[in-house]
Each structure stands twice: as C-alpha cells, then as structure tokens.
Nucleic acid binder design. Sequence first.
DNA 1: AAACAGCAATCGGAATTTCTGATAGCAACC
DNA 2: GGTTGCTATCAGAAATTCCGATTGCTGTTT
Lengths: 295, 295
Amino acid sequence: MELYQLRTFVTVADVGNLTHAAERLYTSQPAISAHIKALEQELNVKLFDRLPKGMRLTEHGKVLIEKAHLVLNTTNDLRIEASTLSGKLAGTVKIGLNTDAEFLQLSSLHQRLTAQSPQLKIHLAEGISIELLHEIRRGSLDGSFYFGDNTLKELETIHLADTTIVVAGAKKLAQQLENASIADLAKLPWIYPIPSCPYQKFVNHLFQDFSIKPKWTADASSERSMNALLRSGVGVALIREDEALPWAEEGLITIWQGKSFTLPLNFAYLKKRKQDPLVQALIESVVESFLSIKK
Amino acid sequence: MELYQLRTFVTVADVGNLTHAAERLYTSQPAISAHIKALEQELNVKLFDRLPKGMRLTEHGKVLIEKAHLVLNTTNDLRIEASTLSGKLAGTVKIGLNTDAEFLQLSSLHQRLTAQSPQLKIHLAEGISIELLHEIRRGSLDGSFYFGDNTLKELETIHLADTTIVVAGAKKLAQQLENASIADLAKLPWIYPIPSCPYQKFVNHLFQDFSIKPKWTADASSERSMNALLRSGVGVALIREDEALPWAEEGLITIWQGKSFTLPLNFAYLKKRKQDPLVQALIESVVESFLSIKK
DNA sequence: AAACAGCAATCGGAATTTCTGATAGCAACC
DNA sequence: GGTTGCTATCAGAAATTCCGATTGCTGTTT
C-alpha cells in the first residue's frame, strides 16, 4: 500500500470513473486501473463495482475510503507542518559578546533572528575577545563579536565598525589627567586589562617609548568590571569613547585628551561552517543589525 | 512523499543509524540514505544531524516524526479495517422462496450467512417457482429455491431434497376422499394452482387418462393461500406430505391414500455468476443447511 | 602517529516497478 | 446494428528504486 494508490482510490471514488480520474491525476487510465487492482489485491477487499457507467464504491469500499481520507489528511498535516518549518532554524545559536549588549545592537539582532526562525533559541556568552575566538574554534560558540585582530586562521571575519578608545579616570583624578603627559599617566594607578584583552595592546603601544611603565593597581577580567572600577575611582583605564562621553557629561569621569585609539569591531565564525544555514542566518542578521544602525 | 519513505524515516529515527535501519527494513544502506534525502529535499527540512555515531533527529525532525507516526498509524487502521472486511460480503443478497421458511431451513441459512458476513443483509421474496426462476435471470434475485424442473438454460441447479406431494381435503370431505377413485376425485371441487405452478403438472398427470377433468373451484396464487383454502373446506388440493401429516393428525384435513407424487426441491442461480463470491457463499450456505438437517 | 572501525554519501549499472498506447470486451444508447 | 463510453489487459518503454563498491569523515585503538 502506497500513498499514490490511496490518492487514486479517493479520486476514483470522487469522480466515479477511471478515465476522468486519470485526467485529474495527470496519468493514464491503465495506470490508475492498476493502482485500484493492486489495492484490492493487497487488502483482499473489492473496493468498486464495475458498472458500464463507471466505478461505484462497494459497501466495503465506503468503509475504507473514510480511512483513506484520514491517511491523506494526516499526510497533508505533515506537509503543512513541514512547510511552516521549511527553511527555518531550530535549536540554539550560541553567540559570544565581547562588550555590552546595546553597543552590539543585540536587541536588533535578537529581533531579526527570532523573526526569521521563531523556534530558534539564542544563547549569549560574555567574555574577552580572544577567548571567545577560541571558543568558536572549539565549537562551543557559533559566532562571536570581538575587538582587534583575528589570529586564528580557521576563522572568517566580518568587519562591523570602528570604535574609539580613550583613557579616562574617575572624577577625583580630573586634575591629574588634565594636560597630563604620557609620562604623567604612567605615574597614575592603572586598572589593567588582563593580557589577552585587546586593550592591552594599546597600553603597551602608549608607553613603548618610555622606560617607565604604568603602575598596576587592579586587574579586571571583564570590560564590565573594569568600568565599574574606573568609575569608583580606583584608577585610570581604557574605555570606549561612546561609553565614556555620557559619563563625562554627567561628571562621573574625566577623559584624557592626549591620545585616542581606533579599535575595529568584528564578527567571527568558523570558515568551514560558512555554508551552514545557522551560521549564514547569524551572519546575515548581525550585518543587517549594524547596517540599519549606521543610516 | 510516499509511505515507504515515512516508514524509513521512523525506523531510522528509532534505531538511530542507517545501517541497522536498512537491516530491519530488509534493504540496503544506500536505499535508506536515498529515502531520507528525498524526504528532506521534498519537505525542505533537515530531519537528521549526521554524526559520526549515526543519525540524530533535529528539532524539526522531532516535530515531523510525530506527524509521520500519525500517518503510519492511520494506514495501519486502514489495514486492520480491511482485514476484518477481507473476504466478507456486504450489501444485500436476494433469495427467492417457493414455499414456507421452515421447510427451506431458512433459520439455518440465515445463521450461516450472517456468521460468515455480518454486514450482509438478506432479502427474501416469496413466489411461485417458475416466476422466481425468471427473476433470477432478470437479475432481481441472486438465487432461489424452486420445485420441479428448470427450463431456463442460463441457470445452474442444485438438487437439495425430494418431497412427497399428496392430495388432501378438509375434514368435511373425509368420506368422499376415503377410497375415492381418480374418477371420484375429478368430481370433487378442486383448488387449482395457477398454471405456472409445478403442482399443476401433477394434476394434469393424474387425470391424463380420463376424459373427465376436475372441477375448478378456486385458484390460488401462492402455496400459502392454497393451504388456507384447503383447510377451510373449499375443496381438495395438492399439498406437501410433511405439511399435511400433522394437520391430518390434528383432524384438520384428510389425505387421499390413492397416489402420491415426488417433487424435487432445487436451488437455482445464474450460471455466469458461479464465480461471484456472493453467489458462492449463498450456494455453500444453502447446501450446508440441507446437509446438516439430513443427518 | 598510524592503522582501524563505524558510519553516511555517492556512483554506475542492474533490477524492479510503473507508465503508456493500443486493443479487446462489455453494456447501454441511439 | 453501429456508436459511444467505460474498464481490463498486454507488451514494450520509461522511470524509479535498489544494490555493491567505494569514498570521506570521525573517533578510537594500537
């Protein structure tokens, strides 16, 4: 018993004649004659009376056509279910965040992903850029935002934006920061990013021509804790300009006017998963999120 | 989408591996692989993740396999329904009765037919033998009991029993019937069967050597009305011996001892419907009814 | 490290199934 | 009595499905 036979069964019962049923099913009359014959033989039940006018359901046929309709209806349910699922993603997409959610347009990203694939769950993991990249390689992340340069050849990178990084300190360090030379800076207490943080590179760069190195006061394992330390007056630190400006206006912190740096914001994913629909959807949504915000 | 693909889908999801699924379905691994691939392409949904260990349902797959089970379950319902119907008859079987139901073992016949085919309806038509035979030929009866000889070449006949026919009259004619000669009989009032009745032949036969013909009193269109007239004392008539004897013992009628006749009871059906399962079942049940009663 | 084992995907050719067009047979209708 | 409309059947064509062999991948064992 196969579905095409049941479709024929139902159609013949409907139009009451093999010839017209054949036309409706875009096939030949002998073909559907064979379908009915095969069904009758397999089920060992006579489904139709053959009259000169055509085919008429037997009593048994009337019982079985109800069941045949049920089968075809459930297959139709399956088809419909499949078409609503079709092309859409399910499961969980794991995204690495190197900085705060607003800056990364996360609400826009979330909207785009769930609009396209309602069944998709989104898992977010905050961390330091380099570590996030390693997690992609390991397969525990599907993609991640990161600052700076990519050192892993397995990863593909998309450039999203450039951010400006400035040196800032809490309000009570305002006097010392104003017109401070680089040498002056080195004397201030620094909140140090951990070595793997891309900010580290700028600190090194800033002081590369000086024998004097900045004084370490505290280290911070995440951007969030670094900013908290910064505002509480523990010392000076590197901070995204867009984040620092409102705080400076509120008088919470003071920005050093001496020098600023440019840091690229990128998005990375595994090269070999470039064809993976989940990865493709992720990239597409990330890029769109940033395009829409630039306008 | 075809049922064999859904069967494969369910089996693979169950055993979690194409190779073992192939064994369970008595086919090859490439065949199974093709089924899944075709399903995935047609539905445009990835059903399985391909892992080194085997196949694991995707989230979409988990949704769709429920539907697939539904489809297969309903096809199973259809099969079960068919197998309870299988070989059994439905509709209506139309049987002609030439005499009373008890004599024809009708309760036994009814039992056998409905035991074999519960959905079969039985329609009974009483009438005169010859007329019943014509109704078979016309197609309005599937088969019929009849007395005497068959004159229609389209019909096949089964001999069931021989019955004895006697001449009898109501009690008040007892004296005239006792030791009556054939000539005496002719003077009595006769309840005449209609010309097509097989009894007629015996009346003719009885008086064939006499110029004197019996006096016609009343005609009867059925055996039942003939017997009613007989008992009510209208005249003498032919009657089945097995029917007459108990009435004679009760003193209702008197049997003429002069001569009796033998009349065959047969069952007829259309030759060309010999292979029709309905006719076959009918014949079988009729014959069994009479075999069981002879023992 | 290298060989191995287990698994799915793919390929070309074989086997099977299904489809088709022509035809026959049957009943009903001019 | 010819015609129409229908189904059943047949042999050959077409399409589908199946199979064995092979490849590629991954994880495991040696």
